[in-house]
Design a binder for these strands. Structure first.
Length: 422
RNA sequence: GCGGCCGUGGCGAAGUGGUUAACGCACCGGAUUGUGGCUCCGGCACGCGUGGGUUCAAUCCCCACCGGUCGCCCCA
C-alpha cells in the first residue's frame, strides 16, 4: 500500500522550504516597515462566513469550497480566501473599538479551493495578504497597492503590470448594473450559458467573460467609469494621484471586475508579463470592500486589502530567473572511528551544540572515507576528526575543508577554537 | 465538470510481442588498515501505474480505472 498526497496538494521539501522562508522574511520585514501586524485566523470557519462574506453567486462559493459537516452537525468550510475570516475576527474581537485606527493586518496562510489543479493552481494554496479596516481614506488604497508592489520590487521582479479600476460606490454600482442589464438583455440568447445567468445575478461579471469576449455587444457595453457618481469619481482620482505621487505605474482597465461580491471603489490586480509563465498571469488581486464589515455583523467600517499567491510569486521569480540565496552550509561535521570513540563523539556533538555551534555527524556506520565524503557533500566548513589516538591524547583534529589544512585542538578548548574560526 | 499529452530503479532516460529490461546521474563498497572533491573496478528493478482482455507468450497490442501534467471555466 502506498499513499500519495491528495490531488492539488504538494509537500514542501527542504530544498524549497528554504526559499519560502527567505520570501516570507522579506515580506514580513516589509509589513513591519509599513506598520502592519500579523493576524492568524482558524483554518476553517462556519460556512456562512463565506456565503455571506464572499457572496453566494461567486464561483468560489458555488463550486470551489471544501465544505464538511463536523460531528456536531455544523457546516464548516476550509477557508477559500483570507478577507472574510479576517473581517469576522475583526468584528468578533471588537477590534473596531481600539483607539488605534485604522487596523492594519497581514496574514500568511493556506487557502483551499476545490478545483482541477494545473500550473499555478492548487487545491491548497498559500497567500500573503493584508487588510486595512477602519479608514475610507484613498491614501490607504494607495498604501496597500504600494505594499504589494514593494514586495515584488524587493524580490527583484521586473515584468509586472498593475491594473486598476473603480467599481464605484453602492449608487454607482447599481446604476451601472441597471445599464448593463438593459444593454445585454436584447442579446441574451447570443451569450454563453454562464453569462445568461450572470445577467440576473451579477451582470458586472459578464464583462469578465472570456467566452463572449468577442461579442459585438461587449465592445459597446456601458463602462463603469461612465457611471461613477461625483463622489466615486473623485475618490478614484485621488487614488490615481497618490499612485502617481509615488511613481507607481498603472493601467486602467474598466473591465477589471474581480470575482468576489464584496468589492467597491478601488479594484486592482498585479500580473506577471514574464515569458513562459504559463496560462495564469494574476499574481495578486484586491480591492476595497466598504460594506463587508456590516455584512458580517459589525459596525459600518470601510476596508481594503489584497491577496497574493505565494506559489505564483515563486513561479514569477523563476520565470524571471531570479535566484533566491539559499544557505546550504554546515559548520562542523564529526568524523569518528575506532573502538569506543562513538560515545565521545556523541558527547562532543552535544557539547558543541550547547555552545551554539551547528554540528552533525555520521549515523550510517560509514567508514572514515565515507564520512569525509558525506562531510564534503554536506558542505561542512570544518571536519572534526576523532580516532582512538586523538581520544587517548584528549585532542581532536580540526580540518578546514576548503584549504585541507588540519590542526590539533585540545578537547577542552574545542568550542572556543571553532567559534574563533567561524 | 470538459479536453490534449503522459505513467519503466532514488532521479533522468532507452527499449522490444518471446532466453539475463540499455545507458547516465545519485548512492554503497573496493583500489587507498584513519582523511573529501579526480580516476578505475564492482554492487544497485523476481520489475516496467492498477485491474481485465487478446495471444502459445506482453513492459510493449486493446479496454477500463487510478494517478500526473498542461489547457478550458474561474481565479492566487
Amino acid at each position: 500500500m502506498s499513499f500519495k498526497a491528495p490531488r492539488g496538494t504538494v509537500d514542501l521539501l527542504p530544498k524549497d522550504s528554504k526559499k519560502w522562508r527567505f520570501v516570507e522574511e522579506i515580506i514580513k520585514n516589509i509589513c513591519h516597515r509599513f506598520h502592519f501586524e500579523e493576524i492568524r485566523t482558524p483554518l476553517f470557519e462556519h460556512t456562512e462566513v463565506f456565503q455571506r462574506g464572499v457572496g453566494d453567486t461567486t464561483d468560489i462559493v458555488q463550486k470551489e469550497m471544501y465544505t464538511f459537516e463536523d460531528r456536531g452537525g455544523r457546516s464548516l468550510t476550509l477557508r477559500p480566501e483570507g478577507t472574510a475570516p479576517v473581517v469576522r475576527a475583526f468584528v468578533e474581537n471588537k477590534l473596531f473599538g481600539d483607539p488605534n485606527q485604522p487596523t492594519k493586518l497581514y496574514y500568511f496562510a493556506s487557502m483551499f479551493r476545490y478545483e482541477r489543479p494545473q500550473k499555478g493552481r492548487m487545491r491548497q494554496l498559500n497567500q500573503f495578504g493584508v487588510e486595512v479596516l477602519g479608514s475610507a481614506n484613498s491614501a490607504v488604497d494607495a498604501e496597500v497597492i504600494d505594499l504589494a508592489m514593494t514586495v515584488y520590487k524587493e524580490l527583484g521582479l521586473k515584468s509586472l503590470k498593475l491594473v486598476i479600476n473603480s467599481l464605484g460606490d453602492h449608487e454607482s454600482r447599481n446604476n451601472h448594473r441597471q445599464a448593463l442589464i438593459e444593454h445585454f438583455t436584447p442579446h441574451k440568447d447570443e451569450l454563453c450559458k454562464d453569462c445568461q445567468s450572470r445577467l440576473q445575478q451579477n451582470p458586472l461579471r459578464i464583462l469578465d467573460c472570456k467566452t463572449d469576449r468577442d461579442h459585438p455587444a461587449m465592445k459597446t457595453a456601458p463602462s463603469i467609469l461612465d457611471y461613477l457618481n461625483e463622489e466615486s469619481k473623485d475618490y478614484f482620482e485621488q487614488v490615481k494621484d497618490y499612485l502617481t505621487a509615488m511613481n507607481i505605474e498603472y493601467t486602467i482597465d474598466p473591465k477589471l471586475v474581480r470575482g468576489l461580491d464584496y468589492y467597491n471603489h478601488t479594484a486592482f490586480e498585479i500580473m506577471s508579463e514574464a515569458e513562459g509563465f504559463g496560462a495564469i498571469t494574476t499574481l495578486a488581486g484586491g480591492g476595497r470592500y466598504n460594506g463587508l464589515v456590516e455584512e458580517l455583523g459589525g459596525p459600518a467600517t470601510p476596508g481594503i486589502g489584497f491577496g497574493m499567491g505565494v506559489e505564483r510569486l515563486l513561479m514569477a521569480l523563476e520565470a524571471e530567473n531570479i535566484d533566491i540565496p539559499v544557505n546550504n552550509e554546515l559548520d562542523c561535521y564529526i568524523v569518528a572511528f575506532g573502538e569506543n570513540v562513538e560515545k565521545e563523539a556523541v558527547r562532543i556533538t552535544h557539547n558543541l551544540r550547547q555552545s551554539g555551534i551547528q554540528v552533525d555527524k555520521d549515523y550510517q556506520g560509514r567508514k572514515p572515507k565515507g564520512q569525509f565524503k558525506a562531510a564534503d557533500r554536506l558542505k561542512a566548513k570544518f571536519v572534526l576528526v576523532l580516532g582512538e589516538s586523538e581520544l587517548e591524547k584528549q585532542v581532536i583534529n580540526v580540518k578546514t575543508m576548503e584549504t585541507g589544512e588540519q590542526i590539533e585542538v585540545p578537547l577542552a578548548h574545542l568550542a572556543e577554537s571553532i567559534k574563533e574560526k567561524l
